[in-house]
Design a protein around this nucleic acid. Structure first.
Length: 270
DNA sequence: AGATCGGCCTGGACGC
DNA sequence: TGCGTCCAGGCCGATC
């Protein structure tokens, strides 16, 4: 469910509410997805950060790592909301930090600060698209991949893209999702498109297709601005050709068959 | 070493 | 109405 823009929105919503508060109690059923949480009791939340799609709560020597999976929803409220799948509840000094997750793909781990061995994707996360993202290392990677979409979903080339924003960025860059071995000009377009797509989605507080809510339980608005994702059969906003859907790397993939061709272009695009 | 596939879960949409 | 099937924003480990 949540990709970088959604997680960033939640982070910005929660930080001012929970920073400085002590964790008084933790409620969670025994489950390998919710690990070592008893050690959070008594700790103060010193800061809230985001890395890719992961939320990191600094508790001093330890760190609370939360990944929302597909349907996870994290929020802060004076009282626990009446949600049907509350998995982990943190009682703070002034309210509750709650984690609701119907499908239980999410994870809540307490780890020694920076110890991410139990979460390989986080441990091997690529650069943040708004911080240390630079073109040449990006090009070095994408010039070698066999298929660009699965490569971007791996989080190793750049952090934070999921199924929605990969499709949107590839559309904006005019690149077919299965294209491999990108040339420099394609890589340049994609390198620009990634932060563009993500920044606009953050401004719009994320994309709510079904489950996503921000840190206050509200919808995002970016779903109204998607160009290809979930728009199968609708006209391409650039050329009018019907958007197609196919399976790439096991994920439903939306693209314009006219603007995003598999072969190398012989004429400059846009 | 890299790519691919199934598994993890529940709920909603759809077809009959 | 009810039932079966398929699909979903992500990650991980096994296998080729």
């Amino acid at each position: 469910m949540p990709e970088l823009p959604e997680v960033e929105t939640i982070k910005r919503d929660l930080e001012p509410s929970v920073r400085g508060q002590r964790i008084l109690r933790v409620e969670a059923k025994p489950d390998p997805r919710y690990r070592e949480l008893e050690h959070a009791v008594g700790k103060r939340i010193e800061a809230v950060r985001r890395r890719g799609k992961y939320l990191l709560f600094d508790l001093g020597e330890t760190e609370l790592v939360i990944h929302l999976g597909m349907t996870g929803r994290l929020g802060f409220a004076p009282e626990l909301p009446p949600l049907g799948h509350l998995r982990v509840n943190f009682r703070l000094e002034e309210g509750w930090l709650y984690f609701n997750d119907p499908r239980r793909f999410g994870k809540v781990f307490l780890v020694p600060k920076g110890e991410y061995a139990s979460m390989p994707t986080l441990a091997e996360m690529g650069p943040e698209p708004f911080e240390n993202f630079s073109f040449e290392p990006f090009f070095e990677q994408v010039r070698k991949v066999s298929s660009i979409k699965p490569a971007l979903l791996s989080q190793r080339i750049v952090a934070g893209l999921g199924n929605i924003y990969v499709d949107e960025a590839l559309f904006l860059a005019g690149i077919h999702p299965e294209r491999g071995k990108l040339e420099r000009e394609e890589a340049e377009r994609l390198f620009r498109a990634i932060p563009d797509v993500l920044a606009l989605a953050i401004e719009r507080r994320g994309t709510t297709l079904r489950d996503y809510r921000d840190g206050r339980g509200q919808y995002g608005t970016n779903q109204d601005f998607l160009r290809v994702f979930d728009r199968t059969g609708e006209p391409c906003p650039r050329c009018g050709t019907a958007i197609e859907k196919k399976w790439v790397g096991g994920r439903g993939t939306h693209y314009c068959p006219h603007c995003q061709v598999y072969e190398k272009r012989t004429t400059p695009h846009n």
